[in-house]
Design a protein around this nucleic acid. Structure first.
Lengths: 132, 132
DNA sequence: CGGCATCCCTACGGATACTG
DNA sequence: CAGTATCCGTAGGGATGCCG
């Protein structure tokens, strides 16, 4: 069942994705992965698989809705794999795919940057707010 | 004028910022920099200063509101420097600060990842949507 | 040229309740 | 345990118009 048409193959071969262009799919992808919860979920999975409840515990303050929504999105994009163990009660594990692992590298650096440079940013804000 | 109190200095000395915690300031900082427009603006400035109109041209489809808002935020956080040349008409240049440059490194990789892995993600989506 | 102010609408995201 | 479904407030963000 060759559902991939010639047109689609052409599009796949094209490597000139440019996020600066509004219509480019990579712009939308950038929008998706530029998300607080995406970053935190991916980083939470960097040391191996975690259960749904484990993720919820690690990401303090996340609502079930956002956690589930983020996980579904990551699963659909092939960044996270969802494994259901049909025990009683049911057990669900999430882990990064190789593709997800490749995104984790830059994304974890962004998270670390935020943690390491918080003081510099705070000083800059105080200065900006003081001077106007 | 020592506006920095002892309490503030204590907080600055503390290095244990943890974005997993909801109350941690670094969580909010992560939320701010995890933004499509932040990424695109910072990457647009990686080759040197640009004028407001230059940025608007490079970031196809951005509204003035979002561009200005993003630039103000980046300026306040000390990531971008704004230089006004009081000519007629006025000329305004934006460029990355050293702090901004340090964030550019991981952030530009995220943008490049989006552009390079768009096809893989699209394939994953087709698979996910087909199987359900 | 490089903004700011305003209106307005949508969709993001939290709280709550229910289910296999 | 691991979700789904619903309601609902708010803030994100576009369009438009005005200003130094």
């Amino acid at each position: 069942m060759a559902t991939r048409t010639v047109e689609q193959k052409k599009r796949e071969a094209k490597v000139a994705y440019d996020a600066y262009l509004a219509e480019c799919p990579s712009r939308q992808l950038l929008d998706r992965i530029s998300d607080k919860w995406v970053t935190l979920v991916m980083c939470a999975l960097q040391d191996g698989p975690l259960r749904y409840s484990g993720l919820a515990a690690k990401l303090a303050g996340v609502s079930q809705k956002m956690l589930t929504q983020t996980l579904r999105s990551l699963e659909r994009d092939g960044l996270v794999e969802r494994t259901v163990t049909p025990s009683v009660p049911v057990r669900v594990d999430y882990e990064l795919t190789p593709l997800g692992g490749s995104l984790l590298i830059p994304i974890s650096h962004v998270k670390e940057w935020a943690e390491h440079n918080m003081t510099s940013v705070q000083r800059a804000r105080e200065l900006y707010d003081a001077v106007g």
